[in-house]
Design a protein around this nucleic acid. Structure first.
Length: 501
RNA sequence: GGUCGCGUGGCCGAGUGGCUUAGGCACUGGUCUGCAAAACCAGGUACAGCGGUUCGAAUCCGCUCGCGACCUCCA
């Protein structure tokens, strides 16, 4: 692999050269959603970020096994000992549905939304309920290794013992072990089943009325949250794999506990590189339903929200996400969305023009040739630097005037070689569609349907005749009427083109 | 309260010691156009505040203010 890829490893808190365990292959596990409600826009950002990472790794030539789970049991509302209820079970009770109906409903919705945002499906999408046996086996291994204890049919991970014996716990999330240990004094009053508040359930005994229940050596119950990821990543990617990803907010306790479980079960670290995406904000603050500062993907598409002035298309939002780095927070505002929308259209239109260019120069290398090639090189350099999509995008935007200039005749083909034009074309094509995962949303251009294209050609011809006769009334009427239909005509030197707004 | 992170021009958003004009949007001037749009060319505004380190800091350190994340469910 000729590119050197650098990634920011949360575990080390620094950028590192990426080296996979097996040359040419990558195992990547990303924590998926708990399917107990409609998918949150913030989730979408995380999965779009990892989609781009997945796409870029494949572009680099790696064979990637991308595992993204569905958590459909074990994720509690509140804590075990304080009467916390399983999220799915709670929803099932409230909506009077079978838990699996709840799961299916929101999982379908999640998949639909992922498709709308044009994310590639993962290689494997395992579900926690489909891996109860694996989880039971892992609990047993942890018990056998002395890092878990049984209390009244539930099994708890012995965090304190693990932390004392291994210099691992807290490394990922930056916890201080001494603080965790001393925490116990404050919480003694809670009459926990747990020996220590930092311990966590890996198997939970179900109450008589609980909807989620499986047989186990310890009780009829269900597995704890965190465990499904440890068990399933091990099953499909091995005890130690390359990349583990997820939202920043999962670092603690979820990921920290995952690391502990894997060590507890097999004495080794689950992943070499940990990648965490940052949060999506709205109007500078975190999204919060209770403070009326939130928006659903649907509302964003339709514009039916007091926070935005109009609807924005899924691809436009994907582009908006590309404009910030995955490790930075991204602030969603109406103004920012409008700006991004224009930028998105400019990029897509420029690419359309670029792809239509036919080389007619003298195949000589001028200053322009060199400049274009340098910018193209930079696009790749930026992506290799921890998937820096905003910078890669900036370089593409610097190439936009070159492409448009060649089209308009401001720039001459004589200044570049045919090779460079081809390289420019393929760079745009590959980045926009294959790596950034954007899609054309209008029905204009070559991809449009034949009837519409034919009609538009006819209309444009009629208007050209009118213009030739200086019949500005007819000419402008056509343009204005089409404009009202959100079809924009653009008169250029070599004729009129059109695009859908 | 504890731990960690952030605060960049009108808006969004990269950049982490000495030219980055980052980029997008908006704005201004020009070219092109029947007019317009698009496109192209050119232009301005910045590094939260205060203090320190340094020959030199938006970039390192300290303090203050503001915001956020985690510590309890969260991508």
């Amino acid at each position: 692999m000729e590119h050197t890829l650098n990634v920011y490893n949360s575990l080390k808190r620094q950028k590192e050269v990426f080296n996979p365990i097996n040359e040419g292959h990558i195992g990547m596990y990303v924590c998926g959603p708990t399917v107990y409600s409609d998918v949150h826009l913030g989730n979408c950002r995380t999965f779009v970020s990892f989609d781009i990472i997945y796409r870029y790794l494949m572009y680099l030539g790696y064979r990637v096994r991308y595992v993204r789970n569905i958590t459909d049991v074990g994720h509690l509302v509140g804590d075990v000992d304080t009467g916390g209820e399983d999220k799915i079970a709670e929803k099932a009770r409230l909506e009077q549905l079978e838990p699996m109906e709840v799961v299916q409903k929101y999982m379908n919705g999640f998949h639909d939304m992922m498709k709308v945002f044009n994310t590639l499906p993962p290689s494997i999408e395992p579900r926690a309920t489909g891996h109860i046996i694996e989880q039971i086996e892992m609990v047993q291994s942890i018990i056998d290794n002395g890092y878990a204890y049984v209390k009244n049919g539930s099994v708890y991970f012995d965090t304190i013992k693990f932390a004392k014996e291994n210099d691992v716990y807290g490394k990922l999330s930056g916890r201080i072990i001494e603080d965790l240990i001393s925490e116990s004094r404050d919480d003694l009053k809670n009459q926990d089943e747990k020996n220590h508040p930092a311990d966590f359930a890996i198997w939970i005994k179900a109450s008589p009325t609980h909807l989620m229940r499986w047989n186990s050596p310890w009780s009829v119950g269900f597995p704890g949250w965190h465990l499904e990821c440890s068990a399933m990543s091990t099953k499909y990617l091995g005890k130690t794999f390359d990349i583990h990803g997820g939202g920043n907010d999962l670092k603690f306790p979820h990921h920290e506990n995952e690391v502990a479980q894997n060590h507890g079960a097999c004495g080794c670290a689950p992943a070499n590189y940990w990648l965490h995406t940052n949060m999506l904000l709205m109007n500078g603050r975190k999204m919060s339903k209770s403070e009326d500062n939130s928006i659903t993907p649907q509302e964003l598409f339709t514009g039916e929200s007091s926070h935005i002035s109009k609807g924005y298309s899924p691809m436009m939002i994907r582009f908006f996400m590309l404009q910030s780095h995955y490790r930075s927070t991204l602030d969603l505002t109406d103004e920012a969305l409008q700006a991004a929308e224009k930028g998105y259209k400019r990029l897509m239109e420029a690419n359309k023009s670029l792809q239509a260019l036919a080389y007619n120069g003298k195949d000589t290398e001028g200053a322009l040739d060199k400049e274009i090639n340098q910018l193209i090189d930079l696009v790749y350099t930026e992506m290799n630097d921890d998937f820096n999509t905003p910078k890669a995008l900036a370089r593409l935007f610097e190439l936009v005037p070159k492409a448009n200039g060649l089209k308009d005749g401001h720039l001459s083909f004589d200044e570049i070689t045919s090779y460079t034009l081809d390289r420019l074309k393929s760079t745009f094509q590959v980045f926009i569609y294959d790596i950034f995962g954007l899609q054309d949303e209008d029905f204009g251009g070559e991809e449009g349907n034949e009837a519409v294209d034919g009609l538009m050609k006819l209309i444009i011809d009629i208007r050209q005749s009118a213009r030739a006769n200086k019949d500005w009334g007819t000419s402008d009427k056509i343009r204005d009427t089409l404009n009202a239909l959100e079809i924009k005509l653009k008169d250029g030197k070599d004729g009129t083109s059109w695009s859908k707004n």
